[in-house]
Amino acid sequence: MLVGEEAAKVPPKIVDYCINDFGPVQLSKKLEKERIPTTQEYNRKDIFPTCKWCAKNIMEILERPEYLWHIVNFK
């Protein structure tokens, strides 16, 4: 999966916040406050993203091993 340079910065930021005791709901509010577009908004290249994150999307990112810097299929 290829992602843009800006989008690639988001998962490590989410993991870092999680390590620092932010839960999924707190994370979604923090990302909204920082005006970070959601994955869907980034993929659609929205001009005016709403940046409305939900806890479910945060959990999906945290559950993906490639976002946690694990080796996946030697990639």
Results as ranks from 00 to 15, higher is better:
M1F: 08
M1I: 10
L2T: 13
L2N: 12
V3S: 13
G4I: 05
G4N: 14
E5Q: 12
E5I: 15
E6M: 10
A7L: 09
A7C: 11
A7T: 10
A8R: 10
K9H: 08
K9A: 12
V10A: 08
V10C: 05
V10T: 10
P11L: 00
K13C: 05
K13E: 09
V15S: 01
D16S: 09
Y17M: 15
Y17W: 14
Y17S: 02
N20C: 07
N20G: 03
N20W: 07
N20I: 00
N20Y: 11
D21V: 06
D21I: 05
G23Y: 05
P24C: 02
V25E: 12
Q26R: 06
L27M: 12
L27A: 04
L27T: 08
K29C: 06
K29W: 07
K29R: 14
K30L: 12
K30G: 02
L31Y: 06
L31M: 09
E32V: 00
E32K: 13
K33Y: 14
K33Q: 11
K33W: 04
R35H: 06
R35E: 09
R35T: 03
I36P: 02
T39L: 14
T39S: 13
T39W: 14
E41R: 02
E41W: 07
E41I: 02
Y42E: 12
Y42K: 05
Y42M: 15
R44D: 14
D46N: 13
D46Q: 09
D46V: 08
D46C: 14
I47Q: 10
F48V: 04
K52E: 08
W53V: 01
W53K: 02
C54D: 15
C54T: 09
C54A: 03
A55W: 11
A55C: 06
A55V: 01
K56N: 08
K56G: 07
K56L: 09
N57G: 12
I58E: 00
I58A: 01
M59G: 03
M59W: 08
E60Y: 11
I61N: 05
I61T: 15
E63Q: 13
R64T: 12
P65V: 02
E66H: 05
Y67M: 03
Y67I: 00
L68M: 10
I71V: 11
I71E: 06
V72Q: 07
V72A: 02
N73L: 12
N73C: 06
F74E: 13
F74P: 00
F74C: 10
